[in-house]
Simulated scan of single mutants.
Amino acid sequence: MAEVKSLTREEEKILFSTLRKFKDVEAERDLNWMLLMRYTARRVQTVHLLDEADALEALDKGYLHLASEKQKGGKKDSVRGLDKKQEIYLVDAARKALEALLKIRRKMIAANPESSYDEQALILSRRRQRMSIRAYQQRMTHWCNTAGIVKASPHWLRHTWAVRRLQNSTTGEGLRQVQAVLGHEHITTTQVYTQPSRDDLRKTMQEAAL
């Protein structure tokens, strides 16, 4: 099995606490798209494509509805020929992140009302256009360096959700639930998250040193 790259609990705490120390609009934006990814387990490709309308609908209904074109590959179900759709329940942290991203969007637009901007995109770049996937990766690298933690990509936040969910699982249904949330077609894809995490290995080494 391939290695699962995820943040340890300590790294996650350090990353988010570092971001919260900065009060500029770009830091606030970055903190909240990271939190949204962490608490919805979405891919960066999906978050990159979110529109303002998607966020408003999600806050109204309590679920983030994802059409096939906003998921990996953007393709139809190869077996049934149907559009794959997924809805993700918004936990409180995800709801707050969406609310914050809407406020940040309005703040960025109001800062220069005469300048053009992307009228649909939820998350805007410094130039007020839809942030590119490369920009998400660059911002993640920047904040990992600032926080002094391992260099991570945005995709690690999705992995972190899955690892933490299985660590906290008290029933045998955990793996199937993770499969459903992540949208994996085969359970074998999800089983990679059953490997010991870096948190698990650190704890093992500490216990062996006693």
Rank of each mutant, 00 (worst) to 15 (best):
E28W: 02
D30C: 00
S6P: 03
G74D: 07
T190R: 12
F16E: 03
L90I: 01
A93W: 09
L64Q: 07
A100E: 09
S68E: 02
D200Q: 01
T189I: 12
H142N: 06
A209C: 08
L64Y: 02
E26K: 15
W33Y: 08
L31M: 02
V178I: 08
D77V: 09
H65S: 03
K5Q: 02
T40P: 11
Q179Y: 12
M108L: 08
W161D: 01
I123F: 12
T8S: 03
T190P: 14
S17L: 05
R176P: 02
T141A: 05
A162L: 05
L82M: 10
D83T: 02
L124E: 15
M205G: 00
K72Q: 15
G148L: 12
A94F: 06
L56W: 06
A111W: 10
A208K: 13
H184M: 03
D30E: 15
L201Q: 10
N32Q: 07
G174K: 01
Y89T: 05
F22R: 02
D200S: 11
L182R: 12
H159M: 06
A209N: 09
D77Y: 13
T146R: 14
E10I: 11
R29M: 04
K203N: 09
D83Q: 12
D200T: 00
V181H: 12
S132T: 04
R164G: 08
T194K: 13
R202D: 08
Q45Y: 10
A147R: 09
S115L: 12
L101F: 06
H155M: 01
Q138G: 09
A55T: 04
K96F: 03
Q138A: 08
D118W: 11
E114Y: 12
A55V: 03
M131R: 15
D92C: 04
A97G: 08
I133K: 07
I14R: 10
Q71M: 15
L36P: 05
R20S: 14
R95Q: 01
S17T: 15
S125T: 04
L166F: 09
H159C: 00
T204P: 10
S78Q: 15
H142V: 14
K5V: 11
S115V: 13
L64S: 02
I109N: 15
V25C: 01
S6T: 05
E99H: 03
W161E: 11
R139Y: 08
N112M: 13
E119N: 15
E10N: 07
K96V: 13
M140G: 09
Y89W: 04
V150G: 14
G81I: 00
R130M: 13
D24P: 02
L59F: 00
V150H: 11
T204W: 15
L7N: 07
N32S: 07
A135V: 14
H142P: 08
S197N: 10
T160V: 06
A67R: 09
V181G: 13
W33P: 00
L102A: 01
R38G: 01
W156V: 03
S132N: 02
K23H: 14
I109C: 02
G174Y: 13
M34W: 00
D51W: 15
V91A: 14
L122E: 06
R202T: 12
K5R: 15
Y193N: 10
L35Q: 09
L101Q: 10
A209G: 13
K75I: 08
Q129S: 07
H65E: 09
P113M: 13
E119M: 10
P196Y: 01
T190W: 10
N145E: 10
S78P: 04
R42E: 05
H142W: 05
C144K: 01
R38A: 03
A93Y: 04
